[in-house]
Amino acid sequence: MTAYALARLQPTAAPHPDVATYIERIQETFEPFGGRFLVHGVTPERIEGEWEGDVVLVAFPDLAAAHAWYASPAYQEILPLRTAHLPGELIFLPGVPAGYDAATTAAALRAALPA
């Protein structure tokens, strides 16, 4: 089942050259794990709630591949280039299985509600 790496990167006053190096090298780190950009460094259109920062979304074949990418020596080597100069958050998300129907989730939620 497809998994996603979702990053929210906080704005900074001025870009650092290390961030450019990180961006130049990141794609080669996730390609061996089947990762590919779906969204890269865009400011989202905020519809509801609070949001600050840019978004990066990478798809992987599954959570194991996403974890293997993050732990890989190639990614760990460049990670400080970003974290030292561009604060943000990174989360992994499992996708829904083929044939997913939100009505099933709603039914489970209703079953758990107090009578």
Rank of each mutant, 00 (worst) to 15 (best):
M1F: 06
T2Y: 10
A5W: 01
A7R: 01
L9I: 12
L9W: 10
L9M: 13
Q10M: 09
Q10K: 04
T12E: 12
A13G: 08
A13D: 15
P15H: 03
H16R: 10
P17W: 08
D18V: 01
A20Q: 13
Y22T: 01
I23Q: 14
R25W: 00
Q27M: 11
E28D: 15
P32C: 09
F33K: 05
G34V: 08
R36H: 15
V39Q: 00
G41A: 12
P44R: 02
P44W: 04
E45K: 11
I47A: 12
I47S: 11
E48F: 02
W51T: 05
E52W: 00
G53T: 06
G53M: 10
V56F: 12
L57H: 02
A59C: 07
F60M: 07
F60I: 03
P61N: 10
P61V: 13
D62F: 08
A66S: 08
A68L: 07
A71Y: 01
S72C: 05
S72Y: 08
S72L: 05
P73I: 12
A74W: 00
E77S: 09
I78E: 09
P80Q: 09
P80S: 10
L81I: 01
A84K: 04
A84Q: 07
A84F: 00
L86M: 13
L86R: 00
P87I: 15
P87F: 13
L93N: 01
G95H: 03
V96S: 12
D101K: 09
D101G: 05
A102R: 14
T104F: 11
A106M: 11
A107G: 12
A108K: 14
P114N: 11
A115V: 09
